[in-house]
Computed example of a mutant assay.
Amino acid sequence: MKLSLPKFSILLALLIITACAYDEDDNLNNTPNGEFMEIITTDSDLFKNLQDIASNDVRPDKSIACIDFIYPLTLFVFDNSNELLSSHLIIDDDQFSSFLEDLDLSLSISISFPITSTLSTGEEFIINTKEELKAAIDECLNEELVFECNQLIQSCIWKVGYSYNYSNDYLGGIFQESNGFTTLNVNDVLMSGSWSPFIIENELHINIGLNDTSEIGTFFNFDWKVEYLDENSFLLKNGDRELVLNQRCDPEFADCGNFVFEVCETEIGSGISEFILDDYTFCIFDTLELDEAFDINYYETQEEALNSTNAIISSDVFINSENNQSIFVRIDDDENDMQYVMVITLSSIDC
């Protein structure tokens, strides 16, 4: 049975699902048999979708909010020979989520069909099989991901973050919704364009289209495949290209710039200033979304950073030797035995 749903209507309100639970009083002599029931294996996409429905995860790709079960409902558990092991009365999402999480991977489950689904419009349709249930969930999930992706840029700004695998010159650039247009601000150069999420073969994509023919537009104007790093971060991929976007809803996001740190000159025209490198540690950790347990040290040369020698005492005053001097920052993740080296710029300004 193919479901026909009004476009986006499934996102405007909750889809209510009522399950017909197995009633032992009506079937005293009828033990459920896996050969005749709709078995859902733990390695199936449908099983994962059921976990997402029961989940309260804040990440849109880890939960399904547009479908909800009306409890109680009954689940049956079968062994790998499709023999019934147990039945369970589920009363809420928390119990459902815990049950699915703790289920042995060698076992399977079944939900009593048919399932009657009611839209917010009052329209009803009946789901008779697990294939129809999966189709309804897939359609709901795809619409929800597109909707969420569109809403995210309208509610907060997205800041171009640091990627360890692909370098770009636009770190700190800000995507924002403004008067119905998507804008990108890079070093006070403002461009407008579009931010268009869509689904291809159940994968979320964002098409970025800036009205810009410069190197900036050439870098960003692609169809990007979207992966969630966490609830506040996207990883966008196009071939070998990689772009990290971090959501910023706090008012202090602008305090962290493009890793160019400016301090007034000690003497006008000298190009020399006094810097305290510790002052920039928070910005680096915040922009790179680093764990506070990581170690960070500053070096004057890349070689020193790679060899971890002659670290600058970051709490002391550091006097740059030239304007716009590069400082190499080494970040150590001891738990995973990984090291990263990045560059910041110390800029002396006339003020």
Results as ranks from 00 to 15, higher is better:
M1W: 13
K2D: 14
S4P: 03
L5T: 14
K7Q: 13
F8G: 09
I10D: 15
L11P: 04
L12P: 07
I16W: 00
T18S: 03
T18Y: 01
A19M: 08
Y22E: 02
D26G: 06
D26N: 06
N27G: 08
N27W: 12
N29L: 13
N33K: 12
N33M: 08
E35R: 09
M37E: 08
M37V: 07
E38L: 00
E38Y: 00
I39T: 05
T42D: 02
S44L: 09
L50S: 03
I53N: 12
N56R: 05
D57L: 00
V58S: 10
S63Q: 01
I64M: 14
I67Y: 15
F69C: 13
Y71M: 09
F76D: 08
F76V: 02
E83Q: 10
L89W: 03
D92G: 04
Q95A: 12
F96K: 09
S98C: 15
S98R: 14
F99V: 14
L100H: 05
D102L: 09
F113C: 01
F113T: 02
T118S: 06
T121G: 09
E124H: 07
K130H: 00
K130N: 05
K130I: 01
I137V: 15
L152Q: 11
V160F: 04
S163N: 14
D169V: 05
Y170D: 03
I174F: 06
G180N: 13
F181V: 09
T182I: 14
T183N: 11
L190K: 11
M191P: 10
S194F: 14
S196P: 02
I200K: 15
E201L: 14
E201H: 12
H205D: 10
D212G: 15
I216R: 14
T218H: 06
F219L: 07
F222K: 13
F222E: 11
V226D: 12
L229P: 00
L229A: 08
N232W: 12
L236T: 08
N238V: 08
G239M: 08
E242P: 06
D250A: 10
P251N: 13
A254I: 11
E267K: 12
I268Q: 09
G269E: 03
S270E: 08
F275G: 00
F294G: 01
I296M: 11
Y298K: 03
E304F: 09
A305E: 10
L306C: 03
T309N: 11
N310W: 02
I319S: 07
N320M: 04
S321W: 00
N323M: 08
R330V: 07
D333K: 09
N336E: 12
N336I: 08
Y340T: 14
D350S: 01
